[in-house]
Design a protein around this nucleic acid. Structure first.
Lengths: 231, 231
DNA sequence: ACTCCTGTTGATCGGATGATCTATTATTTT
DNA sequence: AAAATAATAGATCATCCGATCAACAGGAGT
């Protein structure tokens, strides 16, 4: 009997799933969906993508707002590693290396289509989570960067928070160009990030010589070298 | 008889307007409205803000899409002055001054609530105008900046387009922080802009000495001075 | 095989939304 | 005063969208 399995055309998709899996599946697809069409995307279209009925969504999320909350949490959570603040304050490593490591890792996490777009959508919508995220980023990462820069900068040219935001914005803008505006960007942003950091450090006359780094003589980057104004 | 004038409570607002003025009024309010609530804002709410009936909107715009097109045009048009490309290429003025003048004027034009938000909304929506605008900006402004920088930079450290985007993004990010994310920013961004430009120029070892500027000895900025590495 | 449990469906409701239409009122123009 | 035109009021249409609910179906346990 070939008709007993109820082959409705959904080949390979099980009908009945354990609630945990189904919820997971819904959130995962919702992230992709809302990232593409915006937070005003309708539940019917999302259900169609999932291959389930629209009413099923409301078995797992009481309201669409609840679903969006789950999407926010999924997207925002784990985007900021807990050990970054301590690593950024670790003066046994050159500041350039610390910045390079942070922004390389960070860009690897956030230069991603779904995150970038949902972050922007929620920012425009004035979502509380967006605001909290940026404040958290500012307090736990950017403020340490300011402190570290101030400790190494020449006394006559002290950095302000605006300088840190400028460094940060210049790097983040790569992701905005790519995922929000759909403009072409380098396949790997690492070189551009390194340039941005070197530009930043050179402005405050911070090179390798000023950093106490006995165990790291040069960064393991074979391409264009770091600025060494005092060299 | 006190009811002959039909005083419905709309004191000071004329009912009947010449079509040109009415259309103008609708577009102006639509810009503010859609900038606030997003492009999915509904026509009834917009009509209420205007103090007119919803059906009147469709006397002036056949569809909501037409209205949005008018909003786009209003917002995008005139945001890029025609003389900037030539001024940016004018080598009788120091590059720092040229950049300073451009970004001061440009930020004065774009660091504005409605523009920033509609630009971002339309960018996320993949509007063709958004893409065209950025390509135009890139071709007429950023490419000249690259050329001017390359002409003055030391031969061993040549700028790439990514460096220009980094400069641009770092500055534009000020407006994004303020109007998209609702974060606090300096009342006047000029100092931050000047810093960003100086950081950029210092990275390529460009100061005043390298620029042929006989008629301008110092910029008329009383605050912190420019970088002069070769001074 | 039978029942029980529950994940899933399909139909549907109430409200919102873009867009249209008619009749009426107000204002400008001739 | 009369004609022309803006705008209103208001109903209405078709559709879409979030949310609800009764009924179905498919797998696990006894």
């Amino acid at each position: 009997m070939d008709g007993t399995t109820g082959q409705d055309g959904d080949i390979g998709t099980r009908r009945r799933l354990p609630p945990r899996e189904r919820r997971e599946q819904i959130v995962a697809e919702a992230v992709r969906f809302f990232a593409e069409v915006g937070l005003d995307g309708n539940t019917r279209q999302l259900a169609k993508r999932l291959g389930v009925t629209q009413s099923l969504l409301f078995k797992y999320f009481a309201t669409k707002e609840d679903l969006l909350e789950a999407v926010y949490e999924r997207v925002y959570l784990g985007r900021l590693s807990a050990d970054w603040p301590t690593r950024m304050a670790d003066r046994s490593t050159p500041l350039r290396t610390r910045l390079l490591e942070f922004y390389t890792e960070y860009s690897g996490l956030i230069f991603e289509h779904d995150w970038m777009r949902i972050f922007m959508f929620s920012g425009l919508a004035g979502a509380a989570l967006n605001h909290r995220y940026l404040e958290h980023l500012s307090e736990t990462i950017l403020t340490p960067v300011l402190a570290e820069t101030a400790a190494l900068a020449t006394t006559d040219k002290q950095p302000t928070m605006e300088d840190i935001w400028n460094l940060h914005g210049g790097i983040v803008y790569i992701g905005i160009r790519k995922h929000i505006y759909g403009l072409p960007t380098p396949d790997c942003p690492d070189a551009a990030i390194a340039n941005a950091i070197d530009k930043y450090l050179s402005y405050f006359d911070i090179g390798y010589g000023k950093d106490a780094s006995p165990h790291i003589s040069r960064p393991d980057r074979p391409d264009d070298g770091p600025p060494a104004p005092g060299d």
